[in-house]
Computed example of a mutant assay.
Amino acid sequence: MSEAAIEKELRSLRETVATLVRMFGPRLTREQVCLRLGVSRPTLAKRLELGQYPRPGKDGKWLLSEILEWEARH
């Protein structure tokens, strides 16, 4: 197998792992998100309403990976 083929395979594996983490990774409660972002519950609610923070999933929790991605962008 060539070096280019190995690099392509590794890139594919990394993308697959990232997708699985996004789908099934650790989830944070509202309280944990507030602590991590350093905001109160009312502030979190207001910023969610304004679209300033990522939305929680259907279970009311946030994927840690989504919060980490959001933090990296802001």
Rank of each mutant, 00 (worst) to 15 (best):
G38T: 12
K46G: 01
I6K: 15
R27F: 07
E15G: 05
V21K: 14
S12H: 08
V21H: 10
V39N: 00
M23V: 00
A45V: 08
L28T: 06
R30V: 10
Q32V: 06
L48Q: 13
L10D: 01
V17E: 01
D59V: 00
G25A: 09
L28K: 08
A18E: 15
V33P: 00
T29R: 03
R22Q: 13
V39K: 04
F24S: 08
E7S: 09
R22Y: 06
R55E: 11
V21T: 13
R30L: 08
L37D: 06
R47G: 01
P54S: 04
R14N: 08
R30G: 04
G25D: 10
P56E: 04
Q32W: 08
R27M: 10
L28E: 10
L28I: 07
P26K: 13
P56L: 06
L35W: 02
G51Y: 07
Y53Q: 06
R11V: 03
R36G: 00
S12C: 03
E7T: 08
M23C: 06
T43C: 05
L50A: 14
G38A: 11
E49D: 11
R27K: 15
K58E: 13
V39G: 01
A45C: 01
D59T: 04
E7L: 13
A18L: 12
F24H: 15
I6S: 09
D59C: 02
Q32C: 05
Q32A: 10
L35R: 13
R14W: 10
V33S: 02
P26D: 13
R47T: 04
R11A: 15
P26R: 15
V21L: 15
L50N: 12
Y53S: 04
L44P: 12
R36Q: 12
L10W: 04
A18I: 02
R55H: 07
C34E: 10
E7D: 13
P54E: 04
E15A: 14
G51N: 07
E49A: 11
T29I: 04
P56I: 05
P42T: 01
G25H: 08
R36N: 04
L48D: 01
Q32L: 05
E31N: 02
P26F: 02
S40C: 08
V33C: 01
E15C: 03
V17M: 09
K58Y: 03
L28Y: 09
T43E: 12
T19L: 11
A45F: 10
L37A: 10
R55I: 00
E15M: 12
R14D: 11
Q52D: 09
G51C: 07
L37C: 01
G25Q: 13
D59P: 04
G57T: 04
L20C: 11
T43F: 01
C34L: 04
P54F: 09
V17A: 09
R27N: 03
C34K: 02
T16I: 07
L44C: 13
L50P: 00
E9T: 11
D59W: 06
A45P: 00
L28G: 02
T19G: 03
R27E: 13
G25P: 10
T19M: 07
E15T: 09
T29N: 06
T16Y: 03
K46Q: 15
T19P: 01
K58D: 14
K8T: 13
D59L: 02
V33M: 01
S40D: 09
R11Y: 12
I6D: 09
T16M: 10
L20N: 05
P26E: 15
G38Q: 08
